[in-house]
């Protein structure tokens, strides 16, 4: 960015630079499938979608806990299910050599999926 375009900034310059770098990185996190890496490209896409659904389920569970609408037995089942789901995701990430940072999709002007 040209210096003459920055009209005002305050606070920590280092933090601002770090934040702008993150935005730049975000725009690079797109699925980049080629014939050589199509398997891991697809795995990344599928696991990102599964992670999105897992997080939605988790959010919904927290809302139900807040709403006091669960019985003791349901709480036990819910905890076990979410735990197993999280563990399974960890296993799959290891198999495909992916980290949490990899599980995201840049949707252009809409920002990141996760």
């Amino acid at each position: 960015m040209d210096d003459d375009k920055v009209l005002f900034y305050s606070g920590s310059a280092n933090e601002i630079i770090k934040e702008l770098e993150k935005i730049k990185q975000g725009s690079q996190s797109r699925i980049n499938a080629t014939p050589e890496n199509v398997e891991s490209g697809l795995a990344k896409l599928v696991l990102t979608l599964i992670e999105l659904i897992r997080k939605l389920i988790e959010k919904q569970a927290m809302r139900r806990i807040e709403g006091n609408s669960l019985t003791d037995e349901q709480i036990e089942n819910l905890g076990e299910t979410l735990m197993k789901l999280e563990n399974k995701m960890e296993e799959l990430k290891k198999i495909f050599n992916l980290t949490d940072k990899d599980l995201n999709l840049n949707l252009g002007p809409l920002g990141d999926l996760l």
Binding site: M62, I65, I75, L78, G79, E80, L82, M83
Partner: peptide
């Protein structure tokens, strides 16, 4: 229980 501890952290 394990489930409750897990959910509490979440």
């Amino acid at each position: 229980t394990k489930s409750k501890n897990y959910l509490l952290k979440k």
